[in-house]
Design a protein around this nucleic acid. Structure first.
Lengths: 342, 342
DNA sequence: CAAGATAATGTAAGCGCTTACATAGAGGAA
DNA sequence: TTCCTCTATGTAAGCGCTTACATTATCTTG
């Protein structure tokens, strides 16, 4: 069914059909109804490729995340998807596997599909520094969600996820409870682990404590479900080695769950004997016997902010003020308590 | 940058540029290199809207799921997304909130975007019965992922998720362990709860046991994180009422986690005093202190099968044999054991 | 009721590509 | 050389729409 067929059947020109579809009020009610009848009769939907070719927009937004199968990204994807739908946009979703190269390919592909805007979650420093984002942003609105100081100061549209603040809040809380030694449990590699470790280290230094290397427990997986047993194993071992004496900071809830298992199995109580601070505040934080104190990155707010910024941009808004900072929140639960030996 | 600009700069006609991009081998190496140089120089990517208008395909596939923020769907979305990318397709992702109406709107929208194919996860019976899917499938390949006997027999391309078999395996397992009374814990509403309850009920009847209504525990939420405390509360209450004596079947891992909390808090041991059978086998099943025996729906296989079917269809394959059945698998862990009073 | 104003519809150009067909150039056989 | 074949490139139509502009129908109003 093409617009021509509808026009023929309704006895009007294709221009009239187009008007009925795009500017109903300017066509006489009588004609309009006749056309609409034919349209609904055939379930006719105009070809948005052809339409986009003329109008220069596709009512489509490209969204990039590192991984689809990660609870941590679920909430932000959900939020963005919902907002886009409400505004009549479709979402093209791509997973980059944390590869800047793949990210670039996706963005070029988005461009060729004439998306009206792009949201990059966990934007890579590399693609910013090489000038790729700015170049792409010159052609169509791009919103960067990131935790990178350089991007923050770039003047691009961006949502800054203040992870250092989250770390500070977590450490402050432990400190206030009397913990003077905090073991740092992390995954193998990845920007966010490095950032957190740096923040952990800096914080300790600021408070006159030493970020001793043996306090860093590194497991080989980060975010898959294998992280749970690996973290458990790592913590058990550290426990046996007498390294864990006051508190543990885990980089995500999976690792924290593993830590909890290790600690309970060793006969110690949480939080009486040992505190565990977690990060991400996913469903895992509340699904076990001991509910985890966890840093919540407020991904819903992040998603909302990113969508808002993008809509503004797509509506022709300028770059000024197109910048947000979201504060992580510490959610207190049962896994942290006063230090017993503090 | 349009093809015309490239042509002009390379000193050739637009047809030649097009050929360089689509059929490199038919243009003389010398010319080709000259064109390619200009193309890369400007990061030129052809407008896929214009291209799609001619070629009649968009290299895009529409995927529909009920909810983005549900661990249960993460794996299948991930699998499909990965397969699509490998094959050079982009994924338009829509969340239907379990609304057949919204599902229809999405499918129409997909159609207008000239997607090359559509995958509907948890296809609705309503849209099948009303003839909507078949009508849509006449115009472009559609693969339905579902647990609906009617759709299974429809002759459409479909992946049948044999949930009844999963239930049977779960119940057989409990029965073999000596459990003769199985409490059924479920969410408020939704096809899959009804299907499971029916299977539970049928199974009991077949084994000469009675599916007594008071054995059905229904909480007001199903899949959000609120389900955990609600399930805990429901189970605690049933425990106090003396209703839970041998085993509990929970419709998903969230509910099972709530059940575990209730049971442990009441002082009973798992699985010595009470067994808990879970469903979905998400990360939650392995993240707590007691690891849950759970029915795994093999969503990765489902996703693979769905993609395969779609690729076949998009490649021009016929409808015959475009049908798969995936068997759920029972993953045995620590939450189920021999009945103590069996 | 003529005639200018206005509302409703039609005509046709063109969005950026692909591709059938036309054309030109190069090489080889007679 | 002439004619034919083959290869490389150009020309132009057309994909299904939107929209500026042209045209025709319908009102106003003196």
């Amino acid at each position: 069914m093409r617009i021509e067929d509808i026009a023929k059947e309704a006895g009007v020109s294709i221009a009239t059909v187009s008007r009925v579809l795009n500017n109903p009020q300017i066509v006489k009610k009588e004609t309009r109804d006749r056309v609409l009848a034919v349209v609904t009769k055939h379930d006719y939907v105009p070809d948005s490729l052809a339409r986009g070719l003329m109008t220069r927009h596709s009512k489509t937004v490209g969204v990039l995340i590192i991984s689809v199968s990660n609870s941590y990204y679920m909430e932000i994807t959900e939020t963005i998807q919902r907002r886009l739908r409400e505004a009549g946009y479709m979402m093209l979703l791509g997973a980059t596997d944390d590869s800047p190269e793949l990210e670039r390919r996706y963005i070029l592909d988005f461009a060729s599909r004439r998306v009206d805007g792009i949201i990059v979650i966990d934007a890579s420093h590399e693609n910013y520094a090489s000038g790729f984002y700015p170049r792409a942003a010159a052609k169509r609105p791009i919103v960067l969600v990131h935790s990178d100081e350089a991007i923050r100061a770039s003047g691009m549209r961006e949502v800054f996820l203040d992870q250092r603040l989250g770390m500070r809040r977590a450490m402050d809380h432990l400190w206030a409870l009397g913990h003077r030694e905090v073991v740092f449990l992390r995954g193998r590699e990845g920007f966010s682990y490095d950032l957190k470790q740096e923040a952990w280290s800096d914080w300790l230094l600021e408070h006159g404590a030493e970020p001793r290397p043996e306090l860093v427990l590194r497991i080989d997986e980060g975010n898959t479900e294998d992280a749970v047993p690996l973290a458990e194993e790592a913590v058990s071992q550290a426990l046996r080695g007498g390294l864990v004496r006051s508190a543990i900071f885990a980089c995500n809830d999976l690792q924290a769950r593993g830590a909890v298992s290790a600690v309970t199995k060793s006969g110690l109580r949480i939080p009486e004997d040992l505190s565990i601070m977690s990060h991400d505040n996913t469903i895992l934080a509340v699904s076990g016997r001991v509910q985890l104190t966890s840093v919540d990155l407020k991904m819903k707010s992040v998603g909302l902010a990113a969508s808002e910024l993008l809509f503004q941009a797509m509506g022709g808004g300028g770059i000024e003020g197109a910048s947000r900072r979201i504060e992580p929140e510490l959610v207190l639960r049962d896994s942290t308590g006063r230090a017993c030996n503090g």
